[in-house]
């Protein structure tokens, strides 16, 4: 059983993990080294194709695409981490609370949650960005807030299941108060769900950040961002599609990586009360 369990979702976790690792490594490496200065404008080398000096070529300002991609990965990972962090920090306690609270309060919380969930996340982010002004910080908060409901929903469902289990009854029979039950018994048993949800939410955050930057609500210039690279490529889409393909593939790979990782982890962690480790 443990043999089969450890292999389930193995390929997805492997491929997803590799893609995610690539993005993260690119971001980390960019702090130490990039082939060129990603923001250096050099008219002499504008719109060059791939070459030994410029691996993926340059854009219309002569900026190196590889360097932009690497520093852009930084923005992607940063925005994703903070957005998912906000979503998890608010959504997880909210979900546990909604599961453990008296029925009317739980229902009230979840209906409010549904209201937020019914709102397209990107629209909410655009709205917040429009009200608060464009910027990386606003994008992170906006994406984070709009991802809260999905966390709360998943965690509530998982918590309800855990709360029905014998060991929660046993903990209560041993005199555990609700707070202790939540922290010691419910949270560790929904951790798997939270990890899965986090990696899926990360994928959504990557996409949302790119979309916001594309729309001009995200990271302001000159800081490189995949979304803005896409936007800048728009006018040259037919003359030089390379400029759109490079950041497009990067976004797709990151989103795919986080989604695969999430799916694989879900397969691996889902029969949660079976033997693990």
């Amino acid at each position: 059983m443990s043999g089969r369990g450890s292999r389930r979702g193995g390929a997805a976790v492997l491929v997803g993990g590799a893609l995610v690792a690539l993005v993260v490594l690119m971001a980390l490496l960019s702090f130490l080294w990039t082939p060129h200065d990603p923001t250096l404008v050099d008219a002499r080398v504008r719109l060059q194709g791939p070459s030994p000096a410029y691996w993926l070529g340059t854009d219309r300002f002569g900026r190196d695409l590889v360097s932009q991609l690497m520093v852009g990965a930084r923005t992607t990972v940063y925005v994703g981490l903070v957005a998912v962090g906000i979503a998890a920090l608010v959504g997880v306690p909210l979900g546990v609370l909604a599961a453990m609270a008296p029925r009317w309060l739980g229902e009230l919380l979840m209906r409010a949650n549904d209201l937020l969930l019914a709102f397209p996340a990107l629209l909410l982010a655009v709205m917040l960005a429009a009200v608060l002004g464009a910027g990386t910080g606003v994008a992170m908060v906006a994406i984070g807030v709009s991802t809260v409901p999905s966390f709360a929903r998943v965690v509530r469902a998982g918590s309800l299941q855990v709360l029905r289990s014998d060991f929660v009854l046993a903990a209560r029979a041993a005199g555990r108060r609700p707070w202790g039950v939540a922290v010691r018994h419910v949270l560790p048993n929904v951790a798997g769900l939270v990890i899965v949800q986090a990696s899926v939410a990360f994928a959504i955050a990557v996409l949302a950040e790119a979309a916001l930057s594309f729309l001009g609500f995200g990271t302001p210039p000159p800081t490189p961002s995949w979304g803005r690279m896409l936007q800048e490529s728009q006018s040259l889409l037919f003359t030089d599609p390379r400029l759109a393909v490079v950041p497009g593939v990067a976004v797709a790979a990151a989103v795919l990586g986080f989604n695969l990782l999430g799916d694989g982890l879900r397969d691996r962690l889902d029969p949660r009360l079976e033997a693990r480790r």
Binding site: S165, D166, F167, L169, A170, A171, A173, A174, R184, H185, P188, N189, A191, R272, L273, R276
Partner: peptide, 16 residues
């Protein structure tokens, strides 16, 4: 007052 449960497979927290 304390209680011994029927099903020892589920009466213990698997993550603890």
């Amino acid at each position: 007052v304390s209680m011994v449960f029927q099903e020892p497979m589920t009466a213990l927290n698997p993550t603890m």
